[in-house]
Amino acid sequence: MSFIRVFILVFFFVPIENKAFSQDTISSEKSKTTISESSNKTNVFKQIKLEQLRNKKVVSLSIVLIIILFFLFYFVYQNNRLKQKIKRKDTKQKILLNVINAGIDSQETEQKKIASFLHDNINSLLSSAGLHLNVFTTKTNIQSEEIQKAKAILAQAHDLLRDISHDLVPTLLVRFGLIYALEDLCERNSNSSIEFAFSSSVASEIRYSEKFETKLYFIVSELVSNIINHSEAKKAQISLHENKNQLIIIIHDNGKGFDSEKLNEIEGFGLNRIRVRIKKLKGSFSIISRANENTGTSIKIKVPIS
C-alpha cells in the first residue's frame, strides 16, 4: 500500500510542480520581454527626440547663416554702389577741374597775347604818332592848341594801354620775376584806405619757371582784389618764404572776415577758381577766418617749387 501511495504522489504531484515551475518561468520571461520592449521604446523615443533637436539646431543655424549671408551681400552691394558713386563723383570732379584748368590756361594764354599785342603794337603806334607830332611842331614852330590836345590824348591813351597791358601780364613779372611783381602789386594797391605790406625771405633775384610765376601772381592778385572789395580792411600783409622745396605765401588782413566753413555761400570771392589753380600746381590752400570778429582773414598757400 505504501508503495502505491508513493507512486501516486510521484506520478501526480511532480508534474504539477514542474508545470507550476514552467508557468513561473514563462511569466518571468514575459515580464523581461515587456521591460526590454519598454526600454527599447524609451531608447527609440530618446533617439527621436535627440534627432529632432539636432534637426532644429541645423535648421536654426541654417537660418542664421542665411541671414548673415543676406546682410553680408547687402553690405557688399551697398559698398560697391557707394564706391561707384564716389568714382563717378571723382570722375565728374576731374572733368570739371580739367575744364576749369583748360579755361584758366586759355585765359592766361590770351592775356599774354593781348598784353604783348598792346605793348608791342598799339603802344608802339601811339608812341610813333606822338613822336611825329613833336618833330612836326619843332620843325614848323607851330604852337597849336589842337596839336597840344592831340599830344595829351595820345599820352593818355598810351598810359591807359600800358596799365591794361600791365594788368594782363605785368612787365615786372616777365622781366624781373615774381618777387618784384608782388612787391609792385602791393605798392600799386596801397592808398589812403588800405595799406599793403610786402615781405619775402626769398632772394629777389631768384626766378622760377614762367608758368609757375604767372599762375602764382594771378592767384595772389585775385586774393588782393578780394581784400580790397570785400574785407573792409585797413591793413594787409603778403609774405613769401621757402621751406623744404615748397614756396609758402601767407596773406593776412585785419578786415571783418567771413565764415570759412561756408565757402559755398561766398563764391562771389572766386575761391573755387583759386583752389582749382592751386590744386593744378599740386599745392594746398587753407583759410582761417571768422565772420564779424575783427580778427581778419589769413590765407596760406603751399606750392611745390617747379
Rank of each mutant, 00 (worst) to 15 (best):
S190Y: 00
A155W: 00
F198G: 09
D167F: 03
S193H: 12
P170L: 07
K139A: 15
S201Y: 04
G177I: 01
F198R: 04
S204E: 14
I153T: 05
S199D: 09
A150K: 02
R188S: 13
S204V: 10
E210V: 04
A152E: 10
L178E: 08
I179Y: 02
T171L: 05
V174S: 15
S144A: 10
S201R: 07
T140P: 08
K139I: 09
I206V: 12
L185A: 11
S209F: 03
Q143D: 14
P170M: 08
Q156A: 09
F196N: 05
L161F: 10
K151M: 15
E205W: 00
R162A: 15
F176A: 15
D167I: 04
E187Y: 01
F176R: 13
R207M: 08
E183R: 05
V202E: 09
D159F: 01
F198Y: 08
I142G: 11
N191E: 11
H158K: 10
R162T: 14
K139C: 11
I153A: 05
K151V: 10
D159T: 06
S165K: 02
L160C: 06
S192V: 13
K149N: 14
H158M: 06
E205V: 01
N141Q: 14
E205Y: 01
L173W: 00
G177H: 04
E183K: 05
K151C: 12
Q143I: 11
S192L: 14
V169P: 01
D159I: 00
Y180W: 03
G177A: 12
E145P: 12
P170C: 12
K211V: 06
I206D: 13
Q156V: 04
I194R: 05
K149W: 03
F176N: 15
F196T: 04
S201C: 07
I206F: 05
D184A: 02
A157S: 05
I147W: 08
L178D: 08
N189D: 13
I206H: 09
I142K: 13
R188A: 11
E195D: 14
Y208I: 02
H166A: 08
F198A: 11
S200M: 01
T138P: 10
K139G: 10
T171N: 08
L182A: 07
I206M: 14
S204G: 09
R207A: 11
I206C: 12
Q148D: 13
E205A: 10
S190N: 06
L173F: 00
Y180N: 13
C186Q: 02
L161R: 02
K151R: 13
K151E: 15
A181I: 03
F212W: 04
L172I: 06
D159V: 02
N141A: 14
L172K: 06
T171Q: 07
A155D: 09
S200C: 03
L185P: 01
Q148A: 15
R162H: 11
D159H: 04
Q148W: 02
V169Y: 00
S209W: 00
A150W: 01
